[in-house]
Design a protein around this nucleic acid. Structure first.
Lengths: 191, 191
DNA sequence: AAACATACGGAACGAGGTTCCGTTTTCCCC
DNA sequence: GGGGAAAACGGAACCTCGTTCCGTATGTTT
């Protein structure tokens, strides 16, 4: 992520590593306080570095967001097969997994919006989330489909993006992302 | 909308009305060309006016968007009762009406995103759309619910917002808003 | 300790939204 | 028709925010 060195023998400088860590912590805090679109200058100030340092470590905002949430995305991805093995039915596993994903998204102010953005800077973000999660979703869909529980032709990519969309604005009390997601899950069933 | 006059006897000035019309046309063109977030300066240039004139007529971007799309929103609202009377079943009417709404949204680049924005400037937009369309949706839901075709507890406001969300990013070829909307419509059915 | 690569900071630039006020246009009244 | 007040105009100026750039500082290696 931050290995800019041309010579692979030379290790990353200590101050560089320190700043990178500080930036990750600052960004996480700023994202909680102001959403994932927190001003670059704010994040830099929180980390006690100049704005140039942010761009050196994380060329686009997406890189920073991915770095901050990587653990959680990985955990979500790994939960897929586990749920499939533990649940009573594939459809139940799919439902549980989608709820896991939704829980992750709705607690990250602005993340769902950002994933949707057509801004080139968010391309990385979009790609990372989808690359990591769509295959997991595809497996769950395939299992539920094979069991005859859901319609056979659901596209996992479309489903993930749709679920993501439904989570936008989840902090608005007049909206209820989880309810809409449940309607979608019900709609996947054979009928 | 543009009656700023303090004295109600005094009518709107001719140049003001001319500019207002020019702005509406320019905005409509700019929205088609660049989406509803087209730069203010661009819209002003298209209309051949200064930026100050935009703000005088339409204090927020939402006011301009509402003015541009008012006819279409009205048409959509009025179609609700008509569809209910003409369709074979209330659920069919609901489905048709939702498709009408979706067709409107997906052809307006950025509109669905804007409706979701928590920016105070879009409050008016959000309010207008929901005030006008939620009651129509509520009637359709009530009819379908009374006919025993759908689950009885769907909140029309949540449904409208959810449908709106699903339409975000509909111009991305890897996504399919209509498919997701169909899943939602299916999910509303009693099962 | 010297020399060199690496990384840093923050000024500077550009894009976009918004405000403000001197000037122009229109309208009303005589 | 002409004069003056009210209304509206235009666009410069300002603010915020993302992004770039380069002179300077800090590690690292020999």
């Amino acid at each position: 992520m931050a290995s800019t060195g041309t010579d692979p023998a030379r290790k990353q400088r200590a101050d560089s590593l320190r700043n990178q860590t500080a930036l990750l912590e600052a960004a996480a805090a700023a994202f909680i306080a102001s959403g994932v679109n927190a001003p670059v200058r704010d994040i830099a100030a929180r980390a006690g570095v100049g704005v140039g340092t942010i761009y050196r470590h994380f060329p686009t905002r997406a890189d920073l967001i991915v770095a901050v949430y990587r653990h959680q995305v990985e955990a979500c991805a790994e939960a897929g097969p586990v749920l499939l093995a533990q649940s009573a039915t594939p459809h139940a596993a799919l439902a549980s997994w989608i709820h896991l994903f939704v829980d992750f998204l709705v607690t990250k102010h602005g993340l769902a919006e950002a994933m949707r953005s057509d801004d080139a800077a968010f391309q990385t973000l979009h790609a990372y989330f989808l690359d990591r999660l769509v295959p997991v979703c595809a497996d769950l869909l395939a299992a539920a489909s094979a069991a005859g529980e859901i319609v056979p032709d659901m596209n996992p990519l479309v489903l993930m993006q749709g679920i993501g969309n439904l989570c936008i604005g989840a902090d608005n009390p007049a909206y209820d992302a989880r309810l809409m997601v449940d309607v979608v899950i019900a709609g996947l069933r054979v009928h």
